[in-house]
Amino acid sequence: MKLSKIDRVIIKDLFKATEGLYTYTLYSRYKISPKELFESIKKLGTEELLENDGERILLTKKGVDFAVKKQIARKESEKFDKIPAFSQGPRIEINSFYIPLNFE
């Protein structure tokens, strides 16, 4: 399933909210158009990633697993954890000379 930016935002926020969220909370946080929000929630519901208990929406078990697997809920600070060592050298300034990898 291809996720849109809104899908990711919804999953990410629901991952952090153990008791779920009102749809309106997402709307007021991100000012997403109601149509896009509704369609995203419907899509994720069809995929059984989230459920609506009448008032709030919350991630299902499948949704939680999905968020972990796709690393959607990863914190900003963790984003750079998987950068390989060879890419973590000193910053190269603009227009400065450098030796490309595997030059030989």
């Binding site: 849109s4 935002v9 749809t23 309106y24 991100y30 997403i32 158009s33 109601p34 509704f38």
Partner: peptide, 20 residues
């Protein structure tokens, strides 16, 4: 991600979502 053009109050937002 399309931003809402006009911000809705909570009751109005819920009415819109129920209609959808």
């Amino acid at each position: 991600m399309q931003k809402a053009k006009k911000y809705l109050k909570k009751e109005d937002f819920n009415d819109v979502i129920n209609l959808y």
